[in-house]
């Protein structure tokens, strides 16, 4: 475990905490894409099927449980909690996310490290995570105005991806035979999706103004 990986995991955790805080404090999920949250829940459930078969460390096991539980809790809030549910605007959240699920699974059937149940679901989760932010980015772009906590949520998620790339560069330089094409290529694609958002995030930060995305 290097400092970039740890910082990446922590910003990932922070992004989820920011989202939970926003939903809890405002009893509202306005500006939050339920579809992106459901995709993340699927991502974690599919990737951590190895929770009971491969033990890496107490840290890994603990974080896996936290990610699964928090992603399910967020989906539960948006779908079931009476007050939060009312604030969900399904007319803004129209991305056809099932296409992402189908395409990711199809890709995983062809591109995987080994043709086993766990490995195919692992590859599927990597591909799906790479594109899971799309419904959220489209929703933000359609609504134009982004409230502070939602903006910070997406910012921390993007930071997590950027730090994972630094982690891979570090591991590539320090570990013999560090090659993970599936994770690294998908990770770079995923990070690139945030480029546009980051551009406007930094402009609003520099000008000390509210984050606005162009239509």
């Amino acid at each position: 475990m290097n400092i970039f990986r740890l910082a990446g995991d922590m910003t990932h955790l922070l992004s989820i905490l920011v989202l939970l805080l926003k939903i809890y404090a405002t009893k509202s999920c306005s500006g939050v894409s339920r579809k992106t949250q459901e995709l993340y829940a699927i991502v974690f459930l599919a990737r951590y099927l190895d929770l009971f078969t491969d033990f890496i460390s107490v840290y890994n096991t603990f974080m896996k449980i936290v990610f699964i539980a928090s992603s399910l809790a967020i989906v539960w809030c948006i779908r079931v909690h009476p007050m939060v549910k009312r604030s969900y605007d399904k007319d803004l959240d129209t991305f056809r996310h099932y296409l992402l699920v189908a395409a990711s699974f199809l890709l995983a059937l062809f591109l995987h490290e080994k043709f086993t149940f766990l490995e195919i679901f692992w590859a599927f989760s990597i591909y799906l995570e790479a594109v899971a932010i799309l419904p959220q980015l489209v929703l933000l772009q359609r609504s134009g105005n982004v409230d502070n906590l939602t903006g910070q949520y997406v910012f921390f998620l993007g930071a997590y991806r950027g730090l994972y790339i630094l982690n891979w560069i570090y591991r590539y330089l320090t570990e013999p035979r560090f090659t993970r094409w599936i994770a690294c290529v998908s990770g770079v694609v995923q990070t690139a999706l945030y480029a546009d958002f980051f551009y406007y995030y930094f402009i609003s930060w520099k000008n000390n103004s509210k984050l606005k995305l162009p239509a």
């Binding site: 995991d9 890496i56 896996k64 990610f67 692992w122 994770a183």
Partner: peptide, 10 residues
């Protein structure tokens, strides 16, 4: 020696 690949990242 073929090493079993373990996904050690989250």
């Amino acid at each position: 020696v073929v090493e079993r690949k373990i996904h050690d990242e989250l």
